[in-house]
Amino acid sequence: MSAANPGARHFPLLVGMGALSAFFAGIEILVRIDVINRFIVPMPSQVIASFERVIVEEDVVARFWLTFQEAFIAGAMIAIVGISLGILLYRVEILRRATETWVAAMASAPTVLIYPLFLVIFGRSMWTIVMMGFVAGLPPVILKTIEGLAGTRRVLIEVGRSFNLTARQIFTKIMLPSALPTIFVGVRLGLIFTLINVVGVEFLINFGGLGQLINDLAERYDLAGTYASIAFVILVSVFFFVVTEWVEKCLVPER
């Protein structure tokens, strides 16, 4: 970051925006010259034009807010519960050996398929959606927490012992900070699964925020509106990405 050339800072951003615009322009041209079927892919210009309609008529702001809340609650839950469970499993050897394979299997299972069960338990409510997001995002957080703790370098623990730290201090002052970067990888991964499932279940059970809107518009065959709503989903994920990055920057210094 040289003060003499402030443009250099924004260069990657500009390149990114430029590439994206070029991509949309390309799509626009291909649709207009009928290389791409306009009944499958709407023209980007139509999508942009439909934003106003989606915002005014479809109440997208309130829907955005609902999806955001669901994702936020589920995200906070995977972080809190996932890290706690990871710590518990790490510390209680027998529990870990009993469950680690299960958790790993769950991480790759299509948990979205159990949504009917959650519908029965929580009804057609926001909580079904939150819990689905929670269940989908939980395994990577647990696994990465265990991995991070187990990966603490032995010599760092020995340094702690040589300074006469209690077992508790060794955990909080050495193992946890050492594991933090790995735990963050887990939380980020988990958030991705959570968000996918939140929007996916909204879509499936036709309830709540942006997922339902996408479902509605797709059924009305309003393709431009559908894509415009998808842009709002991307906005939610961008928001979470920025927030986790910011939290990580505060907690984990450059290494």
């Binding site: 010599v155 760092l156 050492s178």
Partner: peptide
């Protein structure tokens, strides 16, 4: 210690 033993987060 023989090994590198600084705390990278500090």
């Amino acid at each position: 210690f023989q090994e590198e033993s600084t705390f990278p987060w500090r």
